[in-house]
Design a protein around this nucleic acid. Structure first.
Length: 714
DNA sequence: CTTAAATACTTTTTT
DNA sequence: AGTATTTAAG
């Protein structure tokens, strides 16, 4: 009970109010995580609610994990692990594993990511004999996703339009949805929609879950979409025991279907609701807060509130004008070093944020060249690499034989002499007989393809079937190792002998390592659980925040995080806000909120960088001007860096430069001062200039220039 | 059917 | 600029 002492008056009210729907407007840095964890603790400890009857939805899996730990440290004698905490997507996935049979899917369904989905859309376009140039599969895939987010189904979409093209798109949409089911697969949107379909068709299921989830908490409520709203409002329909936390000023996922009206209209959707505002910020200096507020308050569509703080004024917001992106990276680096030296801070106290992932490359170059340790969140994802997706496709097909996209991906990988024409014949046959592609391999006699092809397909079929049979008997690691051996993946990559193929094999090796970790950590979990984790873990979830390194990420990824020092790169018209947002009031307001999110991540100091020119497409250099968002901050909060002579040279910083005479080879165990113990995966080049690829614990792969890396052999 | 060369596409953010 | 997909040659 004494844990309530650590809360302010408003927070206390928020924690101890029950009996009606509650909306907590929690401004940036106002301690909402604290409120949520205390509320859960209070529910269990004081209200006597069994942990298993609580449902808490967070925005990332990382946040879910942290929340569990924090609740656990607040109360004793309860099994906190029974609380249902997770993202909407992971909670739905769990629900569907148990209940999707009601809709005629198998429990081993695959979860398709954007890439898989758009491939399936492409198939649909082709099989409807539409022109692939006129009907761009990626655009249409995106469109279908936004329709699903708005809960508009194919037949409804067809009804609301009379345009030829849109009617065709409705057909594609319909075919796509059928093909998904044929493949026993769901996309990210289905994950949210199918539970609703089950609730509608099987009211007893809804009743069951209404009883199970007696109290529902939702974090980051401003970023929920229509299906998510429906999910929580159905669950709480009877008891109305719901508490949502959010900040309309931080709604930044509108483009993904998030509806800011969910939070603004909460009182209309949940009658008799209690609204609580947490307006005291404990995170940032008042300069940071005032600057951020002065920008976001330009938005018209927002709830009226003003965040305040007792914290001291702090440093002004530094505005740094640069010549181009190289100069920007350079100045960023110099400022980072200066602040670090002046304050004796750690690298991990710094975060560099940007609007687009493509901005990270040049920043990375400069940091690496100057031996500044850094980690990048997002960007080119490990699990998006081709070689990794290939192995994952095998695993998926083993779990779910109906998975068409995975089948197409690997039926001829590594090459087994089955070309496009043969694959097409097999798929056509399967369609004709309405069986799944994999089953059609059992009737090869009826398909008109060559003997050689039939022979290797038979081997392929046996391979998958045996693995499927074994998938329950053996642990994940053994299955994967056996698989890689039998398809000869190592030989396939190493025989090519190129740098590229070598890299790819190291990545596959890294996947094996991470599977080994996973198997050790969760010996009882099955292949299907691993695949689900791979599909649903976000970039932030995979971020290892333990190492002392500067964190680079997009503004979107930074939501919910905080750092003492935050640098935002590329604060220019056209980039932030983006060109495409400038003419659209709603989109511009969302960019402004994104700016607000970025600035309020900072505790002590924020620096905004903008360049006078930037390379836009491939080669063209475009003049750029500073963002309107900077102009929207009153001058009294700003400190324009004095324009000194322009240094545009790559600095020659030698303090970390060492002449390493030591050379390393693959397999060497090494120690790095930031990342700790690791293993050398690959060495490219000779001497100090050579690049070494090293894998560290936690599935981290890093590349270094040897002479800057300060590696010690162990 | 496979490999190499040519062409297309990308850079807005992500579960 | 770099990768992915498509096309042409073998």
């Amino acid at each position: 009970m004494d844990y309530l002492k650590n809360l302010n008056e408003m927070q206390k009210i928020a924690v101890t109010s029950f009996g009606k729907p509650i909306l907590i407007f929690a401004g940036a840095g106002s301690g909402k995580t604290r409120v949520l964890t205390h509320k859960i603790a209070y529910l269990v400890d004081q209200m006597g609610m069994p942990p298993e009857n609580i449902l808490a939805v967070t925005f990332t899996n990382k946040a879910a994990k942290e929340m569990k730990n924090r609740v656990d440290s607040l109360i004793n004698g309860f099994d906190v692990s029974k609380i249902n905490i997770g993202t909407f997507h992971s909670i739905s996935a769990l629900f569907l594993r148990k209940n999707i049979y009601l809709l005629g899917y198998e429990p081993g369904f695959s979860i398709y990511d954007q890439d898989d989905s758009s491939k399936l859309v492409k198939n649909a376009i082709k099989s409807l004999d539409l022109d692939t140039k006129q009907y761009n599969f990626k655009n249409i895939s995106y469109l279908i996703s936004s329709l699903k987010n708005k809960m508009i189904y194919p037949n409804e979409y067809e009804k609301i339009t009379s345009e030829y093209r849109e009617i065709k798109i409705a057909k594609i949409y319909e075919k796509y949805q059928n093909d998904l089911k044929e493949s026993n697969a769901v996309d990210f949107d289905d994950l949210l929609l199918l539970p609703l379909e089950i609730f509608e068709k099987f009211p007893e299921k809804l009743l069951e879950y209404q009883k199970k989830y007696q109290y529902v908490l939702v974090d980051e409520y401003q970023d929920t979409n229509k299906p998510q709203f429906k999910f929580i409002s159905s669950i709480t329909e009877n008891h109305k025991e719901i508490c949502v936390v959010g900040d309309d000023d931080q709604s930044i996922y509108g483009w993904r279907g998030a509806d800011i009206q969910n939070i603004l209209d909460f009182e209309k959707s949940f009658l008799n609701a209690k609204i609580i505002k947490l307006e005291q910020n404990y995170r940032s200096t008042s300069n940071i807060l005032n600057a951020a507020h002065s920008v976001v308050s330009k938005n018209l569509n927002r709830a009226n509130k003003k965040i305040w703080t007792d914290n001291k004024k702090g440093e002004l917001i530094k505005i740094i004008e640069c010549v181009d992106e190289q100069n920007e990276s350079l100045k960023l680096l110099k400022n980072l070093k200066k602040i670090k030296d002046d304050n004796k801070s750690k690298f991990s106290d710094f975060s560099v944020l940007y609007r687009t992932n493509s901005q990270s490359r040049i920043l990375e170059d400069y940091l690496r060249r100057n031996a500044i340790p850094y980690v990048i969140v997002g960007g080119v994802k490990f699990y998006d690499r081709k070689e990794i997706k290939d192995v994952i496709a095998y695993l998926r097909l083993i779990v779910n034989n109906s998975d068409l996209i995975s089948f197409e991906r690997i039926v001829n990988f590594p090459v087994r002499g089955v070309g496009k024409t043969s694959v097409k014949k097999i798929i056509d046959y399967a369609n004709e007989k309405s069986i799944n592609v994999f089953d059609s391999l059992k009737n090869l006699g009826e398909i008109n393809i060559g003997q050689k092809q039939k022979k290797s397909l038979k081997i392929f079929r046996k391979l998958i079937e045996e693995a499927s049979d074994n998938s329950d008997k053996y642990d994940i690691l053994s299955i994967v190792k056996e698989l890689i051996k039998s398809i000869g993946l190592k030989e396939y990559y190493l025989d090519q002998g190129t740098d590229d193929s070598y890299d790819r094999w190291s990545n596959v090796n890294e996947l094996i390592n991470s599977i080994e970790d996973y198997t050790n950590k969760f010996p009882d979990l099955k292949l299907i659980d691993f695949l689900e984790e791979v599909s649903l873990l976000s970039d932030i979830d995979r971020w290892n925040d333990e190492s002392d390194a500067v964190t680079l990420m997009t503004l979107h990824s930074a939501k919910g995080l905080e750092f003492p020092y935050v640098f935002i790169a590329g604060v220019e018209e056209g980039l932030f806000p983006l060109y495409s947002s400038i003419d659209d009031v709603e989109q511009l307001e969302e960019e402004r909120r994104l700016f607000y999110v970025g600035v309020t991540r900072a505790e002590k100091q924020i620096l905004l960088f903008h360049s006078n020119s930037r390379r836009r497409f491939s080669g063209e250099r475009v003049p750029t001007i500073k963002s309107r968002f900077i102009n929207e901050i009153p001058d009294k909060y700003l400190d324009y860096e004095k324009r000194s002579f322009i240094e545009n040279k790559v600095p020659h910083l030698s303090y970390n430069e060492k002449n390493t005479s030591e050379t390393f080879i693959e397999g060497d165990r090494v120690l790095h001062k930031v990342f700790g113990r690791g293993r050398v995966l690959n060495v490219q080049g000779i001497g100090g200039e050579s690049k070494v690829t090293i894998s560290f614990s936690g599935n981290q792969i890093k590349k270094f220039i040897l002479k800057y890396a300060n590696l010690v052999r162990i």
